[in-house]
Write a protein that binds this DNA or RNA. Structure first.
Lengths: 339, 339
DNA sequence: TTACTTTGCGCAAACGATTGCATAGCCGCA
DNA sequence: TGCGGCTATGCAATCGTTTGCGCAAAGTAA
């Protein structure tokens, strides 16, 4: 009977003793599929319940080849989409019996040490859930020797899973929505130019526009997905070309910035004078103050797929990483003028 | 191209062999304060570096009385303040050498199983960071036998730490701000009536008002901190009494809801016709669209104090829980009319 | 009855660290 | 030279599991 803090930790030994069986029998009872007779199982289970026994996950992980711990690597919460995605992810992990361990990489601190510290716990997988992460951090993940699943971000190697929204589809959805409702001078506000997601969304948007014989009027990359960036982009964009009647933003927070700049600073009405679309569908988009028509990133589908991949990597054998695109969904609210 | 677990795990044994010393020597080299001669330390360190050795945290935790894992128990992200607090918390934990393990309790799922699963990993502490959590979950935490630190929420027992913002102070700060700028008919919009934070903020507000000979005109508890609640509260409140000229909300998201309802639905101007104050100071408060004057919850100070308490509980001995209030701070923006 | 497969169970060896205890070496000092 | 007191080291037990292996009991087929 080991005493830690003030709690008596009950071990297999204790249960075995009370049930009158060997430690192996107890362990097997808690291992699905292991050979135990109905009789022993019964006695073990009741002994375990009486003592309040639960297997020590640390000890278990020591002998087995997996820990059921999944590391989630994050950067700064600079975009309201991130906590949203993060929340969906952790809930799905729980459902799959995994425990999420959090690694936040600080732009001021060491970009790799926190990752190593997670690896010290022999996490099964690294899920990289941050768009903006130092290159060194990403490299450390890839070289860790542990399966890596990257969310919404592509990397040069082909040894990691990549799962992201179908950004081309999203861009096309935005384009058709705006064109079908009679808009003519359209612009795109992207985040960082060298971020895959931003680029793809823009490409999808432009290609679809071209397919409908409507060239893009303006395109700006702000460097980040932040509200502030959107605000500034809108101002510079609309002083350059006052006739723009529709703007597609690479994120909802950019769109919020655009909307506020347009309404508060330029005195235009949305959607009468100008239509704005976003992408993500964060909860705030539904707030009446914004009522943003947007392209939803299906966080739950993404999280589900991540879980699938974790299971895939967990069985031994020859493995192939995948790049998976998850279809997006148009959410219509009030920020786009109707035809 | 596929590597799953073909990474050779290097152990103390390997390092010991290469360095030509015993496993103990290696272990001691990595234990600060343990007696090792400069010579062996040197050889061990270089062997370790050559092999890329890092101690297995699981194995280490098995023998020691602590794991350096801290469980963070959360409910739904129904309030933008939560990810904000959460982020600060995890960063401070990292700084303190702790790894955060996330437990999210789903209102639809089992309220205690995820907590038990975290306890299976012998977490050192449970930090309860959610306001809205089923009572069973809270009870499970308290009975876990592991130190518990509750954030912004009080419980009936006195065996857990409680750390929260100084809500009375916050209420008083809001009151003086509004009174000093000449407001006369004031209202309070709270969250849930049986949530300590909401209650205290209201009390602080009312007491300060009374101290300045200005009785509270109206008070509403919405049941939650959500935007939607604020929206509805504002409508019902202002149809009841059109002369209200200042509203203090128990959270920023309530305040956003109030502002949008007031501006978009009732056609009033903020702050000319009505002043609104919030509490939390989430990043969104600074957006020009809202420009919310609010009371900041000092998330970093809170996180810092949590870390202090974790260290406190980590040394053995007779322990006393504390209830700590962290001072709040007035943040002035544009949602309050100036005297 | 014999022989052969199942099935269930216990022993003991991992897993990868830490740590109490015993000891070997060294130094200084009388 | 002998002794006491260090410090540095290694041995082996321990933490709480899982699991390969051997074996006894039981079931099946001839």
């Amino acid at each position: 009977m080991a005493r830690v803090k003030n709690v008596i930790r009950v071990t297999v030994g204790d249960v075995a003793e009370l049930a009158g069986v060997s430690r192996s029998a107890v362990s097997r009872t808690f291992t699905p599929g292991a050979p135990v007779s109905a009789g022993t199982r019964e006695r073990v289970l009741s002994a375990a319940k009486e003592l309040g026994y639960r297997p020590n996950a640390l000890a278990r992980s020591l002998t087995q080849s997996h820990t059921n711990i999944v590391a989630i690597v994050m950067g700064e919460f600079d975009n309201p989409f991130q906590p949203w995605m993060f929340d969906a992810l952790t809930r799905h992990l729980h459902r799959g019996g995994k425990m999420p361990m959090l690694v936040t990489v600080d732009s001021t601190g060491d970009p790799v040490e926190p990752i190593f510290r997670a690896l010290d716990f022999r996490v099964d997988v690294l899920v990289v859930a941050a768009g903006s992460l130092p290159d060194e951090s990403v490299a450390a993940c890839i070289e860790s020797g542990v399966p890596v699943i990257m969310l919404g971000r592509s990397v040069e190697t082909d040894i990691v899973d990549v799962v992201l929204s179908d950004n081309h589809m999203a861009g096309a959805q935005a384009a058709t929505t705006l064109i079908n409702s009679g808009h003519q001078r359209l612009a795109y506000v992207g985040g960082s130019e060298n971020r895959l997601a931003s680029k793809e969304r823009g490409e999808g948007f432009v290609q679809a526009l071209n397919g409908m014989d409507c060239p893009l009027s303006q395109m700006v990359f702000c460097g980040s997905y932040s509200y502030q960036s959107g605000y500034e982009a809108a101002l510079s964009m609309l002083t350059l070309d006052k006739k723009i009647d529709g703007i597609f933003c690479a994120s909802d927070s950019l769109a919020f910035g655009v909307m506020d700049a347009v309404r508060d600073h330029l005195g235009l009405k949305i959607p009468q004078d100008l239509s704005v679309m976003g992408m993500d569908d964060v909860p705030m988009s539904a707030w009446p103050g914004y009522g943003l028509t947007t392209i939803r990133q299906p966080v739950n589908k993404i999280a589900e797929f991540v879980l699938e991949r974790i299971d895939y990597w967990s069985v031994p054998g020859e493995k192939k990483p995948v790049l998976q695109r998850i279809p997006t969904e148009l959410i219509v609210r009030n920020s786009v003028r109707l035809g």
